[in-house]
Design a binder for these strands. Sequence first.
DNA 1: TTAGTATACGGAGGGTGCCTCCGTTTAGCA
DNA 2: TGCTAAACGGAGGCACCCTCCGTATACTAA
Lengths: 210, 210
Amino acid sequence: MTTQKGDTEVVTRPPETDEALARPMRADARRNRELLVAAARTVFSDQGAGASMEAIAKEAGVGVGTLYRHFPNRLDLVEAVYQTDVEELWDTAQRVAAELEPWPAVEAFFEAFMRYARTKQTLLAELHQAFEKKPDLRSQARALIESSFDLVIDRAREAGAVREDVTGSDVMQLVSPVCTNASIEPEQAGRLLRLILDGTRAGAARTVLA
Amino acid sequence: MTTQKGDTEVVTRPPETDEALARPMRADARRNRELLVAAARTVFSDQGAGASMEAIAKEAGVGVGTLYRHFPNRLDLVEAVYQTDVEELWDTAQRVAAELEPWPAVEAFFEAFMRYARTKQTLLAELHQAFEKKPDLRSQARALIESSFDLVIDRAREAGAVREDVTGSDVMQLVSPVCTNASIEPEQAGRLLRLILDGTRAGAARTVLA
DNA sequence: TTAGTATACGGAGGGTGCCTCCGTTTAGCA
DNA sequence: TGCTAAACGGAGGCACCCTCCGTATACTAA
């Protein structure tokens, strides 16, 4: 969301829907906007970051004019896709925290994070530009992701499912590079994540550094 | 270097000129190739990674046809620029090690590394693609960079100018992220590098972790 | 229910950038 | 000093990003 022009807009932790700042958008417009973001996710994931704007408009079943009305340029669309992914990660954190036992919630959240990381990987090059243009985007996304980790990890810690001396931020700092570093093979990444999970779990052997 | 087709080619640490595998290239061709890489470095650094192939050919004073003869596509050119940068870093390491006192050599090498990092930063998005297409490129570059650090740091350590328990790889692992992480301001990066330098130097206060 | 209007839609077309093709030029050799 | 393989240059094809504007439609007020 976040209207294109808003510059000095501060997003509170759980951004929620901050709609209706201006007139509330016509129904068809809102529907098409959502169709477009969904189509972009599909097409990017199928064809890679090189997918054309035409292909995305077609997948959404609208004309390119409509696409460009909603997203004045390619980067805005990429940004929207990314932001949606991050928000989805936050939603997932809330959902698993509400529906699952503390430890299974952690595992489910890890899965979701890997999905998120995969998209980010695909769009890495374009996201890099987006981050340069809007440094806020990166920091806000990071903050929301950290909140997601906190939500799940704090809860598990309070329930005694993860060790006392570990924070959401700690886990994020360990997991992020594993998922983001392209030179780590998926198979190795899987092992590393399991290793992190095991180390995070309460009852793991405790090492004291010399 | 590295002919475009070569796939299973293993580059020994200091790659040196492995020319003359095929016939030795006509004089004008070699000259133009060098002109093109130099022009690309200039233009990328002036106009950013978005610079057009036409602009680069123009800067080099040749036609686009010539550009594409030498670099079949944009990525190949970016790759050549990067590789030149890495080789230049290696050359610098050798030069400062030969010409300067051990500690000033370390300082001079840090400067050179920051220049290298700046180019890498500019071309990050395109390099990412290049790395995906040729994983060797990344690992070979990394190896050569590590050798450069080793050369300078080992020498300084043996001369008693840097502390005993520090390796070239250690320093590289500290310095790289500082120079590469876009979310670190140049001013902060400068401070961090000075901090690393000071910590590396022999005679720095020694901390023992609890 | 209907007429009026602000809003949104579609897609042809302008502009630019990557890359190809081929006629022309030239370096290196006998 | 000719001959030829190699290299050069740049017009033009193609694909992609984005704009523009005539058409269609959701909402509102009577």
